[in-house]
C-alpha cells in the first residue's frame, strides 16, 4: 500500500512539474534564439529603429518612406539614423539603436559584410534585426530583398520578344563579385537566355559604378562583340550610361536597365533606354517592418529568412502608369519631373 502511495506521490510530483513547465512555456511562448523572442509586445510599446545607407538617393528615400509608413500603419514609434554611406557609421548607428533600447531594427547596410558584430550585439540585447535590401551578415532574423534572379529573367524575356531569332546575341554589364545578391540579376539573365536558346556573347563587370562606368563598359562590350542586338545592365545609372553610348554611336542595340531610378524613367521616355526592371524599395521597407511586427507583436519566429520582393518590367507602354503608382505610394515627385538623384546600386 505504501509502495502505491509513494508511486502516486512521485507521479503527482512529475505531473505537477510537467504542468508547471507547460504553463511557463505558454506564458513565455516558444522563444528560440535571442532576439527572436516570442514574448509579444503591444503595438503602442514598439519602437522601430531604422538605419539607412544614405538619404541622398531616391531609392533609399522611397525605402525609408516604406519603413515609416508601415510604422505609422501598425502604430509603432519610429527613429531613423543615416549611415551616410560610411561602414563605420553603420556600426555606430546600430550600437546607438541598441543603446536606445528600440524594439526592433531595420537596416539597409552600406557594407553588409561588416555588420555581423553589430547584429550580434543587437541580438544579444534581445533586439530582432531585419535587413531591408542590399544583403546581410551575422544572425539577422530576415532579409527582404528584390527577387533579383527573376528580374534578370524578365530582362532576358523582354529582349527575346524583341528579337525572336534565336541566333541573336546579347551583352551583359554586370556588378562586381562582392554584390552577392545583386549579382543574381545577371545570373537570372544568363539562365533565361540559355533556357530560351540565346547566347550572352560578352559579359563585362562595370568597374566604375556610375553612368560614365556604364558608358565605358558598353564601349568594351561592343568592342568584344559588335554583333550583339541588346544588352542588360544590372544597375540603373550604368544602364543609362550604356544606352547613351549606343545613342552616341547611332546604334540599334536595345539596353535594359535595373532599378527603376528616375533618370531611367526619363531615358525610357526619351527613347534612349528600352526598358528597366523596377525594384520596389517602398514595398521592401514596408515588408521589413511587417516582418518585425510578426516577430514582436504576433510572436512569430524568424531566423535568417530571405523574403523576396517582387520586381516588374517597365517599358514605354506602362511607364506612365508605373510612375503614377510610385508617386502615389511614396509622394516622390522625382518620377514626375526630370531626375536629379539616383541610387548607388
Amino acid at each position: 500500500m505504501k509502495r502505491y502511495l509513494r508511486i502516486s506521490v512521485f507521479a503527482i510530483l512529475i505531473l505537477a512539474l510537467v504542468v508547471t513547465f507547460a504553463i511557463a512555456g505558454c506564458k513565455t511562448g516558444t522563444a528560440t534564439a535571442k532576439g527572436t523572442t516570442a514574448k509579444t509586445m503591444k503595438a503602442a510599446d514598439v519602437t522601430i529603429g531604422y538605419s539607412v545607407w544614405t538619404m541622398e538617393f531616391t531609392f533609399f528615400q522611397n525605402l525609408e518612406k516604406g519603413v515609416k509608413d508601415a510604422c505609422k500603419a501598425f502604430g509603432f514609434k519610429y527613429s531613423m539614423l543615416d549611415q551616410k554611406s560610411d561602414a563605420t557609421q553603420m556600426v555606430q548607428d546600430m550600437n546607438t539603436l541598441v543603446n536606445q533600447k528600440v524594439s526592433g531594427i531595420v537596416s539597409t547596410p552600406v557594407d553588409p559584410g561588416a555588420m555581423a558584430p553589430a547584429v550580434q550585439k543587437a541580438r544579444d540585447a534581445g533586439i530582432p534585426v531585419v535587413c531591408a535590401d542590399i544583403g546581410k551578415s551575422g544572425p539577422v532574423n530576415a532579409l527582404i530583398i528584390s527577387n533579383n534572379f527573376n528580374g534578370g529573367q524578365l530582362a532576358a524575356e523582354f529582349l527575346a520578344k524583341l528579337y525572336p531569332d534565336k541566333s541573336t546575341t546579347f551583352g551583359l554589364g554586370n556588378l562586381k563579385p562582392q554584390w552577392t545578391y545583386a549579382r543574381q540579376r545577371g545570373e537570372g539573365f544568363k539562365a533565361k537566355c540559355d533556357e530560351l536558346g540565346y547566347t550572352v556573347k560578352s559579359e563585362i563587370i562595370v568597374q566604375n559604378p556610375s553612368a560614365e562606368g556604364g558608358y565605358d563598359t558598353m564601349q568594351q562590350i561592343m568592342s568584344a562583340a559588335s554583333d550583339i542586338k541588346g544588352a542588360f545592365f544590372t544597375s540603373g545609372r550604368e544602364a543609362v550610361g550604356a544606352a547613351n553610348y549606343i545613342k552616341s554611336q547611332n546604334g540599334e542595340q536595345k539596353v535594359v536597365g535595373y532599378n527603376g531610378d528616375p533618370e531611367e524613367f526619363n531615358a525610357i521616355k526619351d527613347g534612349i533606354l528600352a526598358a528597366t526592371v523596377l525594384q520596389q524599395p517602398y514595398v521592401i521597407g514596408y515588408k521589413a517592418v511587417e516582418t518585425l511586427k510578426e516577430i514582436l507583436v504576433d510572436g512569430k519566429s524568424y531566423e535568417n529568412v530571405e523574403i523576396p520582393a517582387e520586381v516588374k518590367l517597365v517599358t514605354p507602354e506602362n511607364l506612365e502608369q508605373v510612375a503614377k503608382e510610385i508617386m502615389d505610394s511614396t509622394g516622390n515627385s522625382a518620377y514626375g519631373a526630370p531626375a536629379t538623384t539616383t541610387t548607388t546600386k
Binding site: 560610411d86 561602414a87 563605420t88 556600426v91 552600406v110 557594407d111 559584410g113 561588416a114 555588420m115 555581423a116 558584430p117 553589430a118 551578415s137 551575422g138 562582392q178
Partner: peptide, 17 residues
C-alpha cells in the same frame, strides 16, 4: 580596431574618407 568593430575588411569601403 576598425576591422574588429566591422567584423570585416572591405577593400573599397574600409577607411573611405
Amino acid at each position: 580596431l576598425n576591422g574588429s568593430m566591422l567584423g570585416a575588411a572591405n577593400p573599397g569601403m574600409m577607411g573611405d574618407g
